[in-house]
Design a protein around this nucleic acid. Sequence first.
RNA 1: GGGCCGUUAGCUCAGUUUGGUCAGAGCACCGGACUUUUAAUCCGGGUGUCCAGGGUUCGAAUCCCUGACGGCCCA
Length: 499
Amino acid sequence: MAERVSGLRASRHQKLERLVERGVDPYPARVRRTHTNAQARALLLEQERVEAAAPPPAPVTVAGRVVALRGMGRSSFADLRDGTDKLQVQFRRDLLGEEYASLKDLDVGDFLEVHGSMIRTRTGEVTVEARKFTLLSKSLRPLPEKWHGLRDTEQRYRRRYLDLIANHDEVMPTFLKRSRVIEGIRAFMSGRGFVEVDTPVLVPVAGGALASPFITHHHALDQDLYMRIATELYLKRLIVGGFDKVYEIGRIFRNEGVDQDHNPEFTMMESYEAYADYTNVMSMVEEMVSTVAQAVLGSAVVRHGEQDVDLSPPWRRIPFLEAVEEHAGIDLYPYVLGGKGADELAAEARAKGFDVADGPVHRVYDKLLSLSVEPRLIAPTFIVDYPMIMSPLAKQKPGSPHLVERFEAFAVGMEVANAYTELNDPVEQRRRFQAQEEVRRRYGDEEMDRTDEDFLLALEYGMPPTGGLGIGIDRLVMLLTGQTSIRDVMLFPQMRSRE
RNA sequence: GGGCCGUUAGCUCAGUUUGGUCAGAGCACCGGACUUUUAAUCCGGGUGUCCAGGGUUCGAAUCCCUGACGGCCCA
């Protein structure tokens, strides 16, 4: 029973019916491809290179999507695209006979298998001269326009497959690079002796970051569970268990807004290295990012708007308090020492023209950093030594009781990494969690770290001094591909459902 | 959460200021011509829930209200 279709789609359905009437299977199960488009092209080039007099290469069978059709009467051309290349096909009535007429049931968007010889046309185009062709899959919808592609951002994100087809040359390379960035990170980490692990996504306590979790429920256990907001606390349990170097690349879920560099689910790489501290991690990050850039782009220099940004080590290192002092003109030291309070700081910040709300002091610190410092950090920069209140999982900096050994890495005005010398003192860790709970109660702020008793128990068994790292893969891909929206480096960014 | 902008044919977009030959163009598609095209070309054809729902009006794509979705900026 055919779906009732109207307008532009009707003609494709009519073609489909004609094909079925002729006994053609519009969706056959078998493909007899002998060469990818790239291989077929290479075959001809190789033959031309070796000797013009050499025997012509044997016929090939290629397959792909018809992305262009040019009818010329007794001869027609199609462009066939597979995952490797685009290849022209010529159909000649004198070579195809009766079969030539069935071209009229072919549409742009159909998948086709073509058997024929590799030739060069008079204009020099490498071409398959068809002797036989078989429909592999009938397309029932017209594709977006060939000149402008698909411009509507909403459609590009909601129907990414169309974006990939219509804007192939712009969009596909970004996602291929994304894949190679992740490969590059794995190679780098593996080369340094790190072991890749998988830890739970569904967790009883959403800890390890200052963020709101998604909540869900397990029916059989009759227990609420959370989607992880970090992998940190599980990876540290593994350090307790005796892994010296572990990392995980995985999806993280944070119940927060959507904007140009936030998506509720995103990909993070976290690593933990025993017997290391945050200075070792800094060196590793510099090296990793420039190595991956080199591997994926062939250069450690990326383009950001009008300027070149060199990712080669060493990166600039600026203490947190100095950075805020320099860019915001506010001396945070009295606040960090505890002499002055959060409301006073918020008032001072507002007096300097920063739009910050009253709230927990760590929020004001964070706001000042993101308003005054972050946008100016175009060249890769480490901000180091954060106020302790912002960083409940980081170890105190020796000699600076209110600071911790923490850094964040910034580039092109965006945070890309966060790392600590990990706090491994279980008594102190409990105290820090309690301080977080305290702030949560006082301000009703869900974005505070949560006490994870099972994690504290693990720490009590003893964790070696450890350097830990979290690096946002999506943002790293943005940095390396020059994209300014996280949606353009995620295949399926979060969108509101349409009703 | 606030502000601004957008939503019209399968796609890319005009048309909204000033309500009335405003249902339009290009590509795509359909019919015809064409044996070397590659944004093929030439001739003919408009295929539509103007985002949705209310309202104003003799008359609404256009003005007003509400809502949906998206983008950008701010928070």
